[in-house]
Simulated scan of single mutants.
Amino acid sequence: MFFGTDPLYLLLVMPALALAAWAQARIVSAYREGSRVQASSGVSGAEAAAAIMRSGGVHNVTIEPIQGQLTDHYDPSKKVLRLSVSNYQDHSLAALGVAAHEAGHAIQDAHHYPLLVVRNLIVPLAALGSNASFLFLTAGLLLQSMKLVWAAIALFSLAVLFQIVNLPVEFDASRRAREQLQADNLITADEDAVVGKVLNAAAMTYVAGTLTGVLQLAYFVIRSGALRRGGDRSA
């Protein structure tokens, strides 16, 4: 019995997965609502991102449109801020909020925000851990190998560590975004409420993802203990 069919997995992890599904639905709803409200400043998402980066002392980052919905991200290795086409060209409060958030990451990078530095260092290890951990865990359980199971737990811990470090990075980027949007007169105080709703909904997706990762790790540790006790009894 394992993963989705294991009552322990259902008890520990499924509530977090349900929270993640709710958070995803909430960001879609908040983004759709914010997309209907045009910013009184009349600037586009790309223009807002450029203005915020200038105010933050960032002058070496280019802004590019990218296909997809909510595919917006900042690439620190190439110094490129990529905005989904709608957020790049739209003048809505949702577009400004998302663009400003990514500009916040560019400012973090320019000022060597410590947690962003740590996050960027962890990225390749976290990707490896996330992809390989389930293979190691499955093999360890099938072969009754504690070494493989603990290797899987160590690998997955890297992915969970990334999620934990990433949380304050994302919250800080949103804080910078909302403060600078108002400081640069790109939104009004009333419009900040709509922007805040979009960014807070986005933050919940990170919270839910982190909680899911932590609970999955706890599940793996508990199951490894059961496997070890089983091995001790059979010795």
Results as ranks from 00 to 15, higher is better:
F3W: 15
L11G: 00
V13M: 11
A16V: 06
W22K: 08
I27C: 01
I27N: 01
S29E: 11
R32E: 14
R36G: 05
R36M: 13
S41W: 04
G42C: 08
G42D: 08
E47N: 10
A50Q: 15
G57N: 04
V58L: 11
N60D: 15
L70V: 11
T71R: 11
D75H: 10
K78R: 15
K79D: 06
S84T: 13
N87Y: 04
H91N: 12
A94M: 03
L96G: 10
G97Y: 09
A103Q: 08
Q108R: 10
D109L: 05
D109S: 14
P124L: 05
P124Q: 00
L128R: 06
S130T: 01
S133A: 15
L135Y: 12
L148A: 12
L148F: 06
V149A: 12
I153Y: 05
I153G: 00
L158H: 03
I164D: 03
I164C: 06
E170L: 12
F171E: 13
F171N: 12
R178L: 15
E179K: 05
L181E: 00
T188C: 04
E191I: 02
V194P: 01
V198P: 01
A203H: 07
M204V: 04
T205G: 07
T210G: 04
V214Q: 00
A218K: 13
F220G: 06
V221W: 06
R223G: 01
R228A: 14
R229G: 10
G230E: 10
R233I: 05
